[in-house]
């Protein structure tokens, strides 16, 4: 628990650091994607340049748009993305709002940027945006199901084996130690499901049909420009690292400083670096590599993949954990 003053000081710091790291990761992501395609790619600072340029550009609002929703949604999306950061352990520290929210809350917070994009898309009164918004909605409904199964499986596992209250705080417990070999297999399945949900969650290519540049010319973002588009851009970047940090917190919490026998400032630095490396690996597998290695799915295929394969995998993982727990308990 923290006092109000501490929170007031820390919230802007975390927000700014979060945005900085998010844009930096976006730059790395773009360079790596380019290298995989045998290109040079943009300089590391390109996302910062993009954001700077977008914020300088004129903010155009379509004539027929519902202006207040259209203008508010980018802010809502960014706020929700940043809010996630307060509930997730970052850089080896405890979450800022530790004890105020749990994994279930985080899933809801993750849904808000997508919902904001849906509303913004519908509000912009463009046909492309409308199609994009419909697709975004369908995509969201599809990936939320396996995601929810995975999170609830883990929440149930934690609440039934440890003394933690049901609203467990993220990153406090290493879940791998709680189960037997069958349960570990189940957890690996859940981890794979989470990795598979990640591109859908962050709107990367196999599941980017809501934005599908070559089909509906940007989809939900068609009518957005200038500052609003910049806010969505930052929101998407922050969401990417937030989701990666979420996966890290669920599956690979823990710090490196104890193993390396470091203390003081060295320990903090080592933990922070270790955290960044973990996030980097998750982002690389879950977003960068999948994004360049697979063609875009149709929206019907997105539903099939998530509700069919991913949900089945998640349910199977849940079943394995359940069997394991029944045996243990």
């Amino acid at each position: 628990m923290i006092d109000a003053l501490q929170a007031i000081v820390l919230i802007p710091i975390i927000a700014i650091v979060g945005i900085f790291i998010a844009l930096l990761f976006k730059g790395i992501d773009r360079i790596l994607a380019a290298r995989m395609q045998a290109r040079i790619g943009p300089p590391l600072s390109q996302p910062f340049i993009d954001v700077k340029k977008l914020f300088m550009k004129e903010n155009i609002v379509p004539k027929n748009a519902v202006k207040w929703i259209f203008g508010m949604m980018p802010v809502v999306a960014l706020t929700a993305s940043i809010a996630v950061l307060f509930y997730i352990p970052l850089f080896g520290f405890k979450p800022l709002l530790d004890g105020y929210g749990d994994a279930i809350l985080v899933i809801y917070l993750f849904a808000i940027p997508s919902l904001a994009m849906v509303l913004g898309g519908f509000a912009s009164s463009s046909r492309y945006a409308t199609i994009g918004a419909q697709r975004e909605m369908v995509t969201m409904l599809s990936y939320e199901f396996p995601l929810a199964i995975s999170i609830i499986a883990i929440a149930w596992l934690v609440s039934s084996t440890t003394a933690c209250s049901p609203a467990f705080s993220l990153g406090a417990i290493s879940i791998w130690a709680l189960v037997g070999p069958l349960g570990i297999l189940g957890l690996i399945l859940l981890f794979l499901v989470m990795l598979f949900v990640m591109p859908g969650e962050v709107g990367a290519i196999p599941f980017d049909s809501p934005e599908a540049e070559t089909e509906i010319g940007g989809g939900v973002l068609t009518e957005y420009s200038g500052r609003n588009l910049g806010l969505f851009y930052i929101s998407a970047s922050v969401k990417t690292i937030a989701f990666a940090a979420f996966i890290v917190a669920l599956f690979f919490p823990g710090n490196i400083s104890n193993t390396l026998f470091l203390t003081g400032i060295g320990a903090i630095l080592a933990d922070a670096l270790f955290f960044l490396v973990k996030i980097f690996i998750i982002v690389f597998i879950g977003s960068t590599f999948i994004r360049v290695a697979i063609a875009r799915f149709r929206i019907t295929q997105v539903v099939k993949v998530y509700w069919g394969y991913a949900s089945f995998m998640a349910l199977f993982g849940l079943l394995l954990i359940a069997i394991d727990l029944m045996g243990v308990v």
Partner: peptide, 16 residues
Amino acid sequence: AAHELGFDSVMHYTWK
């Protein structure tokens, strides 16, 4: 064609 499918890596590969 690959680009239309959203598979830009193949586009870069074929053009290479």
